[in-house]
């Protein structure tokens, strides 16, 4: 195990993050505040409570998930795409590192950044709404798992992407809609029965539902199913990455 290499990649990537610290932090804080103003104040004044929770508080887990998923995917995809784009990837390919070490470095850093941002949004939320966390440990566990699994997805996108447009394509076309339709801002029980069934095919529903359970102790789907869904998703990403490195798809001819 080349632990030095893992740490080197991790620190190198984190430095990129800290170099652009202001952008990295200000934009999620600002956009979250906007969501609170628009959804919390404008719509919340009409909805008041969902499943016994004030609407302002109810959307907090969804908002955190929205940012965490987008950030984890974007950071990881950029992290591996950029060296590929400028050609510096030759060094990774010629270094005595295994695919697991490369993934651990890049995905670890991207997940850490997303986790930071998730926690900052949580802190910001406390300024807007009265919030209690029923299961803090489960909350952290869900957050970490989401960061890691979406960073893995981002890594795959970064390897797959042939240009900067494609790099944006999946987050824009798939992740954002799935998160918005995954019950970030509403409970799926509020939907007509047909749409409730359709929604169950959206993997993000399980993540948000589980995460929301860790805050309020109530969920759209059972916590066990949520955990199973996230494990399945992480496993699928890991398997894809293993296949990518085994076949050298898009990186090693």
């Amino acid at each position: 195990m080349n632990l030095n290499a893992v740490l080197t990649i991790y620190i190198f990537e984190m430095r990129r993050f800290f170099r652009t610290l202001t952008q990295s932090f200000i934009s999620p804080v600002l956009s979250t505040s906007l969501y609170f103003v628009v959804f919390g104040a404008a719509i919340g004044s009409r909805i008041e409570t969902v499943e016994g929770v004030s609407y302002g508080a109810f959307i907090v887990p969804g908002l955190i998930m929205l940012s965490v998923m987008t950030q984890a995917t974007a950071n990881a995809s950029f992290g591996i795409y950029f060296p590929k784009f400028i050609g510096a990837i030759y060094e990774l390919l010629s270094a005595p590192v295994s695919f697991l070490e490369i993934v651990a470095g890049y995905v670890g850093a991207a997940a850490t950044k997303a986790l930071f941002i998730g926690l900052i949004i949580l802190v910001t939320a406390f300024f807007f709404v009265d919030l209690q966390i029923a299961h803090p440990l489960a909350m952290i566990a869900f957050l970490v798992l989401t960061c890691v699994s979406f960073a893995l997805l981002g890594f795959i996108i970064g390897i797959w992407a042939g240009n900067f447009e494609q790099l944006q394509l999946i987050p824009l076309l798939i992740i954002t809609p799935l998160v918005f339709l995954g019950g970030s801002f509403y409970s799926i029980t509020m939907l007509p029965p047909i749409w409730q069934t359709v929604t169950l095919f959206n993997p993000v529903v399980y993540l948000i539902s589980g995460f929301r359970w860790s805050f309020f102790g109530t969920a759209d789907v059972s916590i066990g199913v949520s955990l199973f869904a996230i494990a399945l998703f992480t496993g699928a990403c890991l398997a894809s990455i293993w296949w990518i490195f085994r076949t050298g798809w898009r990186i090693r001819q």
């Binding site: 030095n4 080197t8 190198f12 430095r15 170099r19 400028i86 050609g87 510096a88 060094e91 010629s94």
Partner: peptide, 26 residues
């Protein structure tokens, strides 16, 4: 390996990019 094309991270300092290589090789 010194590649033919100049493949370097443009925003890194010389010291940081060279140290990165050393770490990558364990």
């Amino acid at each position: 390996l010194v590649p033919q094309e100049i493949h370097l991270e443009p925003f890194e300092t010389v010291m940081s990019t060279v140290s990165f290589s050393r770490g990558l090789f364990g």
